[in-house]
Amino acid sequence: MVKIKHRSNVAAALFDVVGSRGASRARRHAALVAAVRQTNERVEAIDAVRFTVGDELQGIYPTVAEALRAAYHLRLAVAPEVDLRVGIGIGEVEVIDPERGIQDGSGWWRAREAVDTVKERASQAGYRGLRTAIVGHDDPVLDATVGLIDAHLSRLRGGTVGTVRGLLEGQSNAEIAERQQISESANSQRVANNDLRPLADAIRAVTGG
């Protein structure tokens, strides 16, 4: 049961699995369940991430920065096997059915609009890597930065994702290499060849640390 009744000026977030159908759906769902648990342990939320219908998830955060932090944590936890589309709406959220936890409000309307917006934009030439949109604010620099992060994340393959996670968690090169089961030299090359430090810096900037 959802504990909130009514909140204004919050960040409502919808997470939609891209290409969720197929033979590997059960494996994808298991990975998402684990990622949701980890995200809820690490990111402050008003209403923690939970599954709603099918492969869609939702959560409510006090700020856009926290919503983005949850989004990147979820995405990096399941990438590259699972890809998530993220819509964040800033506005009001209220519980209209406490027993079933059903919510409504401008935050959710804008979050749905954000999902539809990023889905449409990603279908355009040159924007295929976009996965995140924010509706209800007026910060074009944030929008552009989030778009660049998406474009960079879309090009990461295999263990490179794990290296990004390590950088964001503040691990040393040796610690990341040990976790990825590669040499320190190989991890250093991975960081340099994929420009991972600027990517980690940008993610920290939009998530407040």
Rank of each mutant, 00 (worst) to 15 (best):
G166L: 08
A67V: 07
T39N: 00
G19T: 04
V141F: 09
R128S: 13
L68Y: 09
E184H: 05
A65H: 11
P80Q: 00
G101E: 08
R157N: 08
G147C: 10
I182T: 11
R155Q: 14
A12F: 14
V43K: 03
E56M: 10
I149T: 08
S20A: 11
G208V: 13
L168F: 09
V49F: 05
Q103F: 01
P140G: 00
A144L: 15
R131Y: 03
G147N: 10
G126P: 08
S188M: 05
H137W: 05
A174V: 12
S183I: 08
L32K: 02
R25T: 14
G208F: 07
E94F: 12
Q189K: 14
R179S: 06
A200R: 04
A26S: 13
E120R: 15
V146F: 07
V36M: 11
E94M: 15
P198D: 04
R7F: 12
R110M: 13
G158I: 05
V49I: 15
A192M: 11
A205T: 13
L84G: 06
Q58Y: 00
N194K: 13
K5S: 09
S185P: 01
A79R: 10
R75D: 04
E44N: 11
I88C: 00
A114E: 06
R157T: 13
A111I: 10
S154W: 09
I102V: 15
G87F: 07
A12K: 02
I134K: 04
G129S: 06
E56L: 03
R25G: 00
T160D: 08
A70K: 03
I149K: 00
L142Q: 07
G147H: 11
N40V: 11
L199K: 05
W108G: 01
A34M: 08
T160F: 03
G129V: 08
D55Y: 06
A67P: 07
S183F: 04
L84R: 03
L130P: 04
L199R: 02
L130V: 12
V78K: 07
V18M: 11
Q58G: 08
A30P: 03
P198K: 02
R85S: 09
R100D: 09
I60N: 00
N187H: 04
G107M: 07
E81I: 07
A174R: 14
R27E: 15
A125P: 14
A77T: 10
V43T: 09
A34H: 07
R42Q: 13
G59Q: 02
V49M: 13
D201M: 10
D97R: 12
Q103T: 15
E175T: 11
V64K: 05
V2L: 15
E56Q: 13
L32Y: 00
L68E: 05
A11M: 09
M1G: 10
V164Q: 05
D139F: 03
T145L: 15
A111T: 06
D143P: 02
G158A: 11
L156I: 10
P140W: 00
E175F: 02
L142R: 13
